[in-house]
Amino acid sequence: MSVPELAGTVVIGLAMSAIFFMLSVGLSLSYGLMRIVSLDQFLYYSVGAYMTYVVTSQAGNFWLGLLTGVIASCTLALTVEKSLYRRIYEKGVMFSMITSYGVLLVGIGAIKYIWGLVPRPVMTPIVGHVSLLGTTLPVYRFVVIGLAVVLYIGLRLFLERTIVGKAIRAGIEDVDKTEGLGIDVYRIFTLVFLLTAGLSALAGGIHAPLIMVDPHMGLKIIATAFMIVIIGGLGSIKGTVVSSLLIGQVMAFGFTIWAPAAEMAPFVIMLLVFLIRPTGLYGSQYLRR
């Protein structure tokens, strides 16, 4: 593999990692705090992508589409949270997983009904290329990577510096004790749920120009997203970052070497991690309820 090829592959991998990170960090955080596995997040991912598609093709502005997607998804997520999750939180992980799969399916049915089954293309908002180490790469990929870095730093600052962030960290350790201080933990749950939905929608919109938008896009990425969460360890942000980076690179190199391997490799890695640590790289074995 030559240097230009290598550089190109690494950048493609990083862009994938960026999207995986946006999609899985919220899932991991939600599990840590609320002990839910919220599969409806993949609906918000699809909604984010579809809104981006609609606004980009109608109004010609990708960034506006991204924003619309985030707002639409958060509104939808708020409705679902208020109507269903209040009863889900008390019931545990399995219950949330099954019920939210129901929500996801309803959403997919609705998307098929509204936009049909045909995959839709989304125009790349930035068409320029840059030269790097003897290869030319689309600027858009660097923007994606940059955005993920900004989000990661923002999330860290939010969790470490703000009082609500501290309450979230406290809740991840022990929800009852957090509530025992007089904090309305359900409000914090709602906030984290919306944060996760917003990130999922953003991931969907950002991902849209790199793939085609189609009704099953949420289902197609579930396995990878959860492999990342699992490899990193449920509830660990650091783990999510590490495994996003790992899986992004593995898939990118897989594609350049032998395409079918790219989709197999994360699974192999997951099995290897399980052999060594059944709770993922950074997951705590005490994180159960």
Binding site: K166, E173, K177, T178, G182
Partner: peptide, 18 residues
């Protein structure tokens, strides 16, 4: 058990906030 990942100050801040 207090929040083990939070400092004493942060523990008190949370109660103050609540």
């Amino acid at each position: 058990e207090v929040f083990s990942d939070l400092t004493v100050r942060e523990n008190l801040e949370l109660a103050s906030y609540a």
